[in-house]
Amino acid sequence: MPRYFFHTQNGDCVRDEQGEELKNMDAAREEAVAVLGEILRYRGASFWTTGAFSVIVTDAEGQTVVSVTAAASDQAPEGWTLAGEV
């Protein structure tokens, strides 16, 4: 099974030196989302001072295969509207 490494970034990069063997890329994507969710749950309200948090997944050769980022803002995303809004 391939080994994937789940590095985190929020101003400081924390390298995953151990990695995890997973069945395939879909499993790596699921794990990246789970890792990010755990980080956000742990950070709680202090996430607002961080602004953004990323999980960058690399393969055994060090190539980025997927990344996922959560960003905090007091503003709605550009183009966002409620359904039926005029």
Score class of each variant (00 low, 15 high):
Gln63Thr: 13
Glu31Leu: 08
Glu38Asp: 09
Ser54Met: 03
Glu31Ile: 12
Ala27Cys: 06
Glu31Gln: 14
Ala28Thr: 11
Asn10Met: 11
Gly51Pro: 15
Glu21Thr: 13
Leu40Tyr: 07
Ala52Cys: 02
Phe6Gln: 00
Pro2Ala: 10
Ala60Ser: 12
Asp26Ser: 01
Ala32Arg: 02
Tyr42Ser: 06
Gln18Pro: 01
Glu31Phe: 04
Glu30His: 03
Ser54Pro: 05
His7Ala: 07
Val57Thr: 13
Glu38Pro: 04
Asn24Thr: 13
Asp12His: 06
Val35Thr: 12
Ala32Pro: 07
Ala60Trp: 08
Arg15His: 12
Gln18Phe: 01
Leu36Asp: 06
Thr49Ser: 00
Pro2Cys: 09
Gly19Asn: 10
Phe47Trp: 10
Val14His: 12
Ser46Lys: 05
Ala32Thr: 00
Leu40Ala: 01
Glu30Cys: 00
Glu30Arg: 02
Gly37Met: 02
Phe5Ile: 05
Val55Thr: 00
Asp12Tyr: 03
Ile39Ser: 02
Arg3Gln: 14
Ala32Ser: 09
Leu40Pro: 06
Glu20Asn: 11
Arg43Ser: 01
Asp59Met: 15
Arg43Ile: 04
Asn24Leu: 14
Gln63Gly: 06
Gly44Thr: 09
Leu22Ile: 07
Val57Glu: 05
Arg43Lys: 04
Glu30Gly: 03
Ala34Asn: 07
Gly62Gln: 02
Asn10Ala: 10
Asn24Pro: 15
Glu20Val: 12
Ser54Ile: 01
Arg15Met: 10
Ile39Gln: 04
Ala27Met: 06
Thr8Tyr: 00
Asp12Ala: 07
Glu31Ser: 11
Asp26Pro: 00
Gly37Pro: 02
Val14Ile: 14
Glu38Leu: 08
Asn24Ala: 11
Thr49Lys: 05
Ala45Cys: 09
Tyr4Trp: 15
Phe53Asp: 01
Gly37Cys: 05
Arg3Phe: 12
Ser54Asn: 02
Glu61Gly: 13
Thr8Cys: 00
Asp59Leu: 15
Lys23Pro: 03
Gln63Trp: 15
Asp26Val: 03
Ile39Cys: 08
Thr50Met: 02
Gly11Ala: 14
Asn24Tyr: 13
Phe6Cys: 03
